[in-house]
Each structure stands twice: as C-alpha cells, then as structure tokens.
Design a protein around this nucleic acid. Structure first.
Lengths: 111, 111
DNA sequence: TCACTTTATCGTATATTTGCGATATACATT
DNA sequence: AATGTATATCGCAAATATACGATAAAGTGA
C-alpha cells in the first residue's frame, strides 16, 4: 500500500473505523461476550475459554483496551478486565447518527 | 499467525466480526456515507470524492459488496451501487442482541 | 470500425495483523 | 531467598490488507 492514507479522512470516520476494527476479529467478539457474561472481571479465565495461546489472548486484550472498549486494572498478581459500556454507548450512538436519519430518506432506493 | 483460527469460533461471532471488518476502514465508512446521502446510486462519483485511486476504490466497493453491505448492478458502461439496508438492520440487531441484555445486569461493574 | 468512457482485475510493493513460543515481570507463598 | 502463578512483552513467521499503476473488459457514440 505504500502509505496508509487513513489520515485523509475525517476524525469521525477514523474513530468509527477504529471501533469497528477492534470488533473485526471473532476472538475479540468472544472475549467481549465473556466479559459481559460474568460479573467478576475475568483475566486468565478467558484463556481457558478461547482456543488461543495465552500470549495471543493477551494481545487481543491489549487491542481492545487500546481501542477503549474495555478497562483493565492490575489486581495483585493478576489483571482484571471489564467492558467499558460508556465507550460502547458512544460508538453505538455515533454509528446510528451516521446512517439512521439517511435511512428513512432512501429506504426504497434503486438497485 | 500460521493459520487463521477464525473457524474455531461460533458462526455468529464470525459473522459479526466480518461485518465489523467491512466497516474497519475509514474509506469504506466514507463510501457508505456517500451512498447513503445520494438518492441515485453512485459509481465513479465516489472516486472523485475520495482521496484514493480508482482501482483502490473499486477494491473497497468489492469488499463492501462481498460483506453484503451494498448492492451493485451494472448499468450499461457504469456500475450502480447502493446500501443494503436490510443487511445493516440485521447486523445492528445481532450486535445489540449480543450485548444489550447483558448491559443492564452489569452496568455498574467492577474496574 | 475506432476512439472514448467507465469500471474491474492483475501484478506488485509495502504495511499490518495474527499467532505462538520464549522470556520477562510482578506479586504471592512457602 | 526460592518457588510458583498470572500476565505482559519480545521476536519471529506467515497471512492479509492497503494502495497503486497498468491493463483488460464492456458499453457508447462518432
């Protein structure tokens, strides 16, 4: 690709794309599901549930954290993660605002 | 990665991830916005709007079409694209069903 | 038929992602 | 202090994604 031209798009487009990218792997979807299902913030339990090595899971967790979708805190010798619902809410809103009001207008569009 | 282990996740997880992947580039978000804004189904007009080469835009359109997010039909010498709102609706529902009912339970979770 | 326009595809270069084992780090327990 | 447990990071290999120019394909119009 030579150079990524992502900077040439609007901030909103980049933010939404970054959010979608964080969700763009089934392992990360699965991790979010586990975090959402359990009340305690899990850590290495995720490794036991997923068909992936510990280092790989740790990497996915890092990406989710960088994207702001989850929070992580160190609890003694282990790490505790949980979903950042606020970030989820924010992006859900942004996603809808991008398309929803246009949807009505074009519901019965051409092809 | 050696081999992609995506097959080891559930179909729902894979589908949702594939949808998110289609949205995971700002150029594709921008394309969807253009398609949503105009009543006529655009084609090469998108090329004029985006800071990308024609072949690159064509590639992004192909990916969006493969993901089922847009429809494309040939109209004489040109191609006509528009958003597949049904697919959008489906994935939006699926996305919400994955997380929304869990959200209530865990709203005030740990970390 | 011969240009012209529009779009798709091919080939290629480079960047990024995915995955794992090995290792480091950090705390807990003995 | 020594050991064990849990997690993060490093280094590497392989797969994918991104981007573009060149070219092909397919229709239009002179």
């Amino acid at each position: 690709m030579a150079f990524h031209k992502k900077e040439e798009f609007t901030r909103k487009e980049q933010d939404l794309a970054a959010f979608a990218k964080a969700l763009s792997h089934p392992a990360r979807i699965a991790i979010l599901k586990v975090l959402a299902e359990r009340n305690e913030c899990i850590c290495g339990d995720i490794v036991n549930v997923l068909p992936l090595a510990q280092s790989t899971v740790s990497q996915h967790l890092k990406e989710l954290k960088n994207a702001g979708l989850i929070n992580g805190t160190v609890e003694g010798p282990r790490s505790c993660y949980c979903i950042n619902w606020k970030a989820f809410e924010k992006f859900n809103t942004e996603f809808n605002s991008l398309f929803d009001h246009l949807k009505v207008k074009n519901e019965k569009a051409c092809c």
